[in-house]
Amino acid sequence: MSTKDLTAVRRGVGIRPKTSARSAINITKKVVTGFLYAIGIIFLLLVFLVPVYWMVLTAVESANQVVQNPPLFWVSAPQWDNFVKAFESIDFWHYTKNSLIVTFSVMILQFITVIPAAYAFARYRFKGKKILFSITLLTMMLPAQLTFLPVYLMFARLKLINNIMTLILPFGASGFGIFMLRQSFMQIPEEILEAARLDKASEFTIIRRIMLPMALPTIAMLALFTFITTWNDYYWPLVMTTTDEVQTLPVGITGLQNIEVGITQHYVMAGNILMILPVVIVFLIAQKQIIKAFTYTGEK
């Protein structure tokens, strides 16, 4: 800005008092809307953060504090020992290992199935495409509680109950993943693929060098979703497994209820915190990519 401009701006400031009544109204308006926004945001934060706070609080309370009435909202002397006790009372490493095997197997399997399926749905014309895609979407609507019985019976016949495979195989494909990745593939302009074809790129090269890198934010988001849902899943492992040997962390942690006679909530909560720690870390790492996945369309 030149000095001339600056003088003009200063003069502009000098003129302002004439419109002060209006700007005062504007400022009040701004303050009120800002205030309402803040209340809304605080309310949302409370809804999401209070349960988490409650978990953390309980995890560092003593047994007496846990059952105290009225409940405590702050602990002055946190019992960090609860974490040690929770970690040592069950075979934490063993459950973590199972959880890792299951989670990463599911993720890898999903990539193997989801990427080609999404590519085919996005880029090819074939008979029955619409029906197949509808069926794929339909799988997103069915809760696990609906399908567990037939799947259980099927696995029972295959003698796979209480086998780690029962925790992996049913999740080897993902309707949600296919849907999301298809959308992402479809957004890639046709010209870019034509240019690649003219550049003599094979179908495989096109997927590997152009489609996947362009869909990377979506893939990262899918990986994270799969990681979180598989890692945290409680219901399916509870139904499909019966012994420690193949159980995953969420099921293992319920064992903390029985390590002592009486009050054990604080140990369970400490165990829960240990369990969600990796998820939080992964989220922090992938955060940027996730946000990008939802805003990618804005980029040219």
């Binding site: 870019i192 240019a195 990377l216």
Partner: peptide, 9 residues
């Protein structure tokens, strides 16, 4: 191409 169709990645 009209919109260049460069490979963005």
């Amino acid at each position: 191409f009209q919109n260049y169709a460069l490979y963005p990645t």
